[in-house]
Write a protein that binds this DNA or RNA. Structure first.
Lengths: 187, 187
DNA sequence: GTCTATAACTTGATAGAC
DNA sequence: GTCTATCAAGTTATAGAC
């Protein structure tokens, strides 16, 4: 993979537009303008528009995986702390980090089959990490339910925050994460 | 509002395509073909593409509201039954009913400001119904947390099922609803 | 690495006949 | 209510100069 600093910078700008407008409504002209170049020059860095999307989604998923791993390594080994750390990490990559993870979650369907197949191992690794942490919480009796469904519900609740959460409001992403974990914990 | 049977039928078909392809990628030619007419004829029924989206979203949100109201009227008045009924109704409109509610949830942002303003009362009424039911569950000590956040998390978990749930699998939408309610209930 | 210019095509929408 | 024919504008992507 091409990993020039220039390309990384352009990928970051693309992620921002993809979140604001959606992939389909974002034109190469809009991308070029945001990057301060003309639309023709874009294709020196990316083969086509699809490749820009793939680059954004790869970065977003990779970031999420790295940050989540780091978070659970650095936190106490208790199931509750690990669950909280995962939820916090997820919202951190969604709101505090760049927008790439949001694009990965909401525009995955727009990837062509080849790119999707190539990147699915990253997504699978991230979801496996979640299931692992949730398994720990289940075995500790902290939460209850089916491991698969619990993961899906928690991730759904977290992902949907993109649609309503206002980062300029009074609550921090960490507050949200803690509230969600509190909601599902047996008392 | 124009409510001819023909227009209703076309709206139903549009909803299906909007779910499959997304609003932006669905062209008026695709819509026309699905409806068995030519693209020019479409504009006899709808002023423009935006109006088709507005019609779909209005129907989807209206349906969701009607079905949810009926569900909690017909179920026992206990907080747990009502919560369960709301979750089941939500997934019913998402999967068993037509696709219009899915479009309402995932393509709301594509509405122009005028249409969004005109339809927001429907969405607000639906969300108010949720908050009402959740308030009951909170007061009964069935669940715990902030009423606003709990509503958002539950709706997020339910909405995101669209992205992973396979209606042809072994679980029914009702199973999902019950599992979700079970997950958040204090024991 | 960026520019200009443009090819090749698709888009939403209209006009007028039937 | 549907058709055909078509328009104007916008789309992705390419070619070759600098």
């Amino acid at each position: 993979m091409n990993e020039s600093p220039r390309r990384k910078e352009l990928t970051r700008l693309a992620a921002q537009l993809f979140v604001q407008e959606g992939f389909d409504r974002t034109t190469v002209r809009m991308l070029a303008q945001e990057m301060g170049i003309k639309s023709g020059s874009l294709f020196h860095h990316f083969k086509d528009k699809q490749e820009i999307l793939a680059a954004v989604i790869e970065e977003g998923t990779h970031n999420a995986l790295v940050i989540a791993r780091r978070s659970i390594e650095q936190c106490p080994a208790e199931p509750e702390a690990r669950l909280r750390a995962m939820a916090r990490a997820h919202l951190e990559t969604l709101f505090a980090d760049r927008n790439a993870h949001v694009v990965a979650l909401f525009e995955w369907r727009r990837l062509d089959p080849a790119a999707s197949a190539h990147l699915s191992h990253l997504r699978d690794a991230y979801e496996a990490l979640w299931v692992e942490v949730i398994d720990g919480a289940l075995q500790a009796g902290l939460i209850h339910g089916d491991r698969f469904l619990v993961s899906r519900f928690i991730l759904g609740a977290l992902n949907w925050t993109v649609r309503w959460y206002d980062p300029n409001g009074s609550r921090t992403p960490d507050d949200l994460a803690d509230e969600l974990v509190g909601m599902i914990m047996a008392r």
